[in-house]
Design a binder for these strands. Structure first.
Lengths: 220, 220
DNA sequence: ACATTCTCCGACTCTCCGGTCGGAAAGCTG
DNA sequence: CAGCTTTCCGACCGGAGAGTCGGAGAATGT
């Protein structure tokens, strides 16, 4: 019974995720979520006490998927450069997905975290913990690259900063992609960025040999 | 009379800007804006037909300030590296300002542009034009740097992409700053980024001489 | 001082939506 | 089938806020 209940609760949270990402928290009505989940509005309240609680559940559901994808990369390859490129691909995949729900939800999270009266305004730790779990995974990838002798030892000290900067860039470019849909070519933007960034991390100063071939050369 | 009227209209738009940036579009009530502007709610409607129209005016008011600051940089110095660092400083200033209204408004603009029912959802051209004006200014700075022989000619071809990437990064890191207030040191993050980025643009491969001294050395 | 216009706003309406409640339907037990 | 529990939901409540309206009061003109 309780098992059945949590399954249904997660189902509702998934539907909620799509509706929240499409309309944003304030404009997404519980009724609309209920309709798309094929249930009555009151039924939603059997599973979640408030709209806020439902939103938190929806975010957590989405975040766990994201983190799972990130960890999957670590299993797919042990080459640090490959890993970085796959991370960029993960963002890119999000961008190319219909409606870009992931990016929109990221924007929504930022809004709800920093705005007075936002859902996460009084629970910033929830978001911070997610953020740090993600950073941690990426830092581990960089450090593993140093251990394997492929990345410069010097970056170990800045590993966290580097990862945060990478995330910031990728989040930022996807947001610009939302605004300038069709005008900016996100794939090329990211390719250029990675092509410039990765050589800075490599142990060999000879970029032409170890350079990033993942997206093909962009610069001359 | 008409002159007086536009002055007051702009005054209202400025107040609206602070309220929208603090509470976000949906939660900011016209009444609250009226209170903070020291006028009655109905008076607001003398100047703006709808809440949406007021929001657009508020955004435009803020954007013009931002663009003016950006142009000011071009007048202050003609050194391209200086200019880039001053652009980063402009973002940083925004971050260090109380409440970070600029960043919040950027988030709000993204939300209102890409969400169904958002204010700019049906007028994406307004945002796109602003975006392109900003990109254009930054591109001109890069091209001027190439002309003066300080930046590599090769970047001219990618100037727009480079500027968009820089903006994406800066916007992204400020957003992460909103989430992780106090945990991430934005100044150091940006310093690291600029320190890595600028040498890639310089004509001389000798980074130790021409390197970016603006924030001081971060890497070893 | 009177008329006219302009600026302002208090009080109202109307709609939307989060959340509740009481009871119907379905499922389980014996 | 009868009794009990669990799951569901239609109908309602209350509050918030966008936008309206009619008139008060100030400013301007004559």
């Amino acid at each position: 019974m309780s098992d059945k209940k949590t399954t249904k609760a997660r189902e509702i949270a998934r539907t909620a995720f799509t509706v929240f990402s499409r309309n944003g928290y304030p404009l997404a009505s519980v009724e609309q979520i209920a309709i798309e989940a094929g249930i009555g509005k009151s039924t939603v309240y059997e599973y979640y006490k408030t709209k806020e609680e439902l939103f938190v559940a929806a975010i957590m559901e989405g975040a766990e998927d994201w983190i799972a994808d990130l960890k999957e990369i670590g299993r797919k390859t042990h080459d640090p450069v490959q890993r970085l490129n796959l991370i960029a691909d993960l963002y890119l995949k999000n961008h190319e997905e219909e409606q870009q729900p992931g990016t929109r939800m990221f924007v929504e999270v930022v809004t709800q975290t920093c705005l007075q009266g936002g859902v996460f305004y009084d629970r910033p730790h929830l978001i911070r913990e997610l953020h740090q779990r993600i950073v941690r995974i990426m830092v581990d990838y960089l450090l593993a690259g140093v251990s394997r002798g492929q990345l410069r030892p010097g970056i170990a000290r800045h590993a966290e900063k580097i990862c945060i900067n990478l995330m910031a860039y990728l989040d930022g470019i996807l947001m610009h992609g939302l605004i300038e849909e069709g005008y900016i070519n996100i794939r090329e933007q990211i390719a250029l960025f990675m092509e410039q960034m990765i050589p800075l991390l490599l142990i060999s100063p000879d970029k032409s040999i170890n350079g990033n071939q993942h997206y093909g050369k962009i610069t001359e």
